[in-house]
Design a protein around this nucleic acid. Structure first.
Lengths: 151, 151
DNA sequence: GTTGTTATGTTACAACATATCATTTCTAAA
DNA sequence: TTTAGAAATGATATGTTGTAACATAACAAC
């Protein structure tokens, strides 16, 4: 059983536990993200699926599927880049925290990481002082990855 | 002389000092942002200008003008919201730092602020550890403003 | 006044995203 | 095991955001 297969069936069990279904189409979209080393736009995924599988994936469907996968915490949407990545903790059993992302603006490679509790804490305090409320602790930063910075 | 007029002529002098020109159209787009209490999309500005002035503003022109105003640091582009705001320090003489933004996802009101040096410092260290480089210190956070949170 | 530069106009289209309603597939209860 | 309801997908249309490419106009400096 390939690593991809393992991840997919892990995801499937997890969906089942949540009372939802990881259908074939959803699996295929998720596979696309899992096999990519960078963030993909919805339309890139449409192209990928249409090429890889002999099936038609309408853009509309892919958006719906991405929304579902996001709810299931299998993928993350990067709002800064309008792109999607598979969650790096997809095969972990523990509940994971809200992630932060470093996004290479050149090649769309993404590093999912967690900033320290204390840093997050001080950001939250500063937001409170401004009398705003965080909608999400997801923070995205425009970066260059190591190889793009070197070039 | 109205406050708006003061800001505009201040901006004009500043552009002049930079060897660039704040043309009539640019002034009108900037006025639109200055008079709005929330972030506006390029197309909202197109509509605003076309209604307010008896002139045609093509979307293309507004995008170019916004790009110019951003270079001059008179406005900021919010990448998370695909919208623009006038810089709150537009009338200050001192050189200002890279700002951070709290964006209300409900009403698009924006709070421009600066997170503390120490918080920014620890974020930067954590980015370095991940072997990425920050492209910009501008950080944008999805929030609710006070009134939208209350509602 | 010509010339080079900057600004704007115009058209077309690429890329990203959602609304709406129809149809199919699945599931669970009768 | 049929069937009603829910969930998923299909299909079409349209809305929103942004850029490419080339033309013209305005201006400044020589």
């Amino acid at each position: 059983m390939s690593n991809l297969q393992k991840i997919l069936s892990h995801a499937e069990r997890q969906c089942h536990a949540n009372g939802s279904r990881l259908t074939e189409k959803r699996k295929k979209v998720l596979s696309g993200l899992l096999q990519s080393d960078r963030a993909l736009s919805a339309y890139e995924l449409v192209d990928y699926c249409n090429k890889t599988y002999d099936e038609t994936f309408a853009a509309m469907s892919v958006y719906r599927i991405l929304e579902f996968l996001e709810q299931e915490q299998l993928v993350h949407k990067l709002n800064l880049a309008n792109r999607y990545v598979a969650c790096v903790h997809i095969a972990c059993d523990h509940q994971h925290e809200v992630p932060q992302f470093l996004i290479c603006t050149d090649c769309q490679r993404v590093k999912e990481f967690s900033i320290s509790r204390s840093t997050l804490g001080s950001i939250k305090r500063q937001v409170e002082q401004a009398r705003f409320q965080l909608v999400s602790e997801q923070i995205e930063l425009n970066c260059l990855c190591g190889s793009c910075a070197a070039a």
